[in-house]
Design a protein around this nucleic acid. Sequence first.
RNA 1: GGCGAUUUAGUGUAGAGGCCUAGCACGCCGCCCUCUCACGGCGGAAACCCGGGUUCGAAUCCCGGAUUCGCUACCA
Length: 510
Amino acid sequence: MERKVRVRFAPSPTGPLHIGGVRTALYNYLFARQHGGDMILRIEDTDSQRFVPGAEDYINESLKWLGIKIDEGVREGGKYGPYKQSERRDIYREHVKMLLDNGKAYMAFDTPAELEEARATRPNFQYDASTRMSMRNSLSLPADEVKRLLDEGAQYVVRFKIEPGRDVVVNDLLRGNVTINSSVLDDKVLYKSADDLPTYHLANIVDDHLMEVSHVIRGEEWLPSAPLHVLLYEAFGWGDTRPDFVHLPLLLKPDGKGKLSKRDGDRLGFPVFPLEWHDPKSGEISSGYRETGYLPEAVVNFLALLGWNPGDDSEIMNMEELIKKFTLEHCSRSGARFDFEKGKWFNHKYLQEVSDEKLAEMFVPILKANGVNPDDYGMDYIARAVGMVKGRINFVKDLWDQAKFFFVEPTEYAAKDVKKRWNADMPRIMGELVEELKKAPDMTSNVLEQEILGWIAENGYHTGNVMNAFRLTVVGECKGPHMFDITELMGKDETIRRIELGIERIKPAE
RNA sequence: GGCGAUUUAGUGUAGAGGCCUAGCACGCCGCCCUCUCACGGCGGAAACCCGGGUUCGAAUCCCGGAUUCGCUACCA
C-alpha cells in the first residue's frame, strides 16, 4: 500500500452545503494533509432534476471561508479532470458499455409506472435476480424485441446485474469488516438513457478509480450501498486498486430524533449552513455561520471535535494542530448530537485570541448599523472599548450590547439597579462627585480610582452604593468593565456630562 | 418489514480485564475575586442500555435482548 493518499469531497449541487457535509469535507482535508496527499473537489451533478443554480459557487465559497483548500477541482484544475460529472458523459457511456459487453449489466425498459405497480402489487418487491426475468429488460426479452425497442428510441436504464447468494465484505477503516449478502442488494440503476447521465453509484466508482482516489471518506448513509460499490469495482476488474472506505457517523439533531436538518436550525435558532443561503426558487433565506458572527477557525475546531477526539484533553486546536493530530482511530462510530452551546463556547475562545484592533474593525459595521459614526471616535478609542468587553462576548455582534455605552449615552436606566442603588441621597452625592471630578488633574484609571475612593472614605460614604450609582449614570445599568477604566477612556467632560444627565433623569424608586 | 451500523453524565467524549471510589470539556449550581456584570480560579451535582455468562477480578471479553441512527428511488 505505497499508494499516494488522494481523497475527494464530492457534494452534489442540490442546495447549500450542509454543516454535516462540511465536517465530511474537513475530515477528508485533515486526512489528506496529514498524509501529504491530495484533496479533490468533485461536483456530482448527475441529477438534472434537482440541480440548483448557485449551489456550486456556494460550496466553493464555503470551503474557502473555512480554510479547506482544494488541490484539484473545477476551479483549481488538475490532470484528472473534468471534475464536474455532467462534463464526463463520454467517460460514463464508455464504462456502461464495458459492463454491458461483459454481461455485468443489462438494459431495462420498465416504465416508472410499471415499477410502481410492481412495488404496489408484489410484497417486498425488489428488482433483483428473483424478479428480473419477470420484468421488461434485455435479459427477459427476446433479442429482436430489445433491438426493436432500441431502434424505436425507447427510453431505458442500465441496471447492474447482481449475482445472488454471495457474502460481500466491505472493509471499513472505522468499522472493520462489514458483511452483506448480495441477495439483499437490488439491481441498481447505473445509467439513465433519458438524460444520458449515470447515477451516483456508477459515476462515483468510475471517477474514484480514474482519479486514483485512495480513500473514500464519506457519511454513514453510504454504508448500505458500499457492498454494491465493491461489486462494481470487481465488475470493472479494479478490485485490487479499490480505495479504502471510511464511513463517518452522522450529525444528529440537538433534540429529538434523526439527523440534523435545515429545519432544526430554523426551529432552534442556529445555523446549519456555513454561509447564508438565499434559495433562488423560494426566496427563503437560511442563516449561515459566517453571517451569525462565527470565526471560521471556531467552526472548524468545533466541527472537528464532533465525532473525533485528539486522544488527549486538548480542545482548542487550529487547523495546523488538527492536521497533526487527526487520526481515524480516534473517530467515533456513533452519531454525534449537535450541541450549539458548545459551538458558542468555541467562538468565544477564538474571539479572545483576536486583537483589539482587528475586533474593532469587525465592530465598525455594527456601530454604523446602530447609527454611530466610527469617525467620531477613531479606531483607537473603539479598540480600547472593545478590549474592555471582549471577555464577555460570544459573537462580534454581542459587542454592541456590551459596549454601546462607550458610544451613546444611556437613554434609560435599568429599573432594577435604580431601585437598588439610587436612593434619595444620590443626586446630592453625585453632585459632589462631579465637583471632585472637576478638580481631578488626571483621568488615568488607577490615579482617579485612588482619588475617588479616598473622597468616598473621607465622607464616610458606602463604596458600593456610590460606585454603583456612578456606574448607573455612566453606563445605564450596573454592569460592565472596571469603572475607572471606562471613565479614563470616556474622558472627563463626557463623564461629568453623564453624571449630570443622570442626576436630572434618574428618579428614585418608591 | 428487510438489511446494516450503533450504545459511557443533559451534550461532545476519554477509557482497549485490575491504574475506574470512571477522567476531560460544554451546560448547570456554589464559592472566591470584586464598585457591578462578565472573565478567570476553585469546588459540586450528574453516566458505564438491560439480562445472562467467562474470570480471582469487566465500562472493557462472549451470548441474548433492547435502543438509536441509516439504507431500502431512473436522489445523492
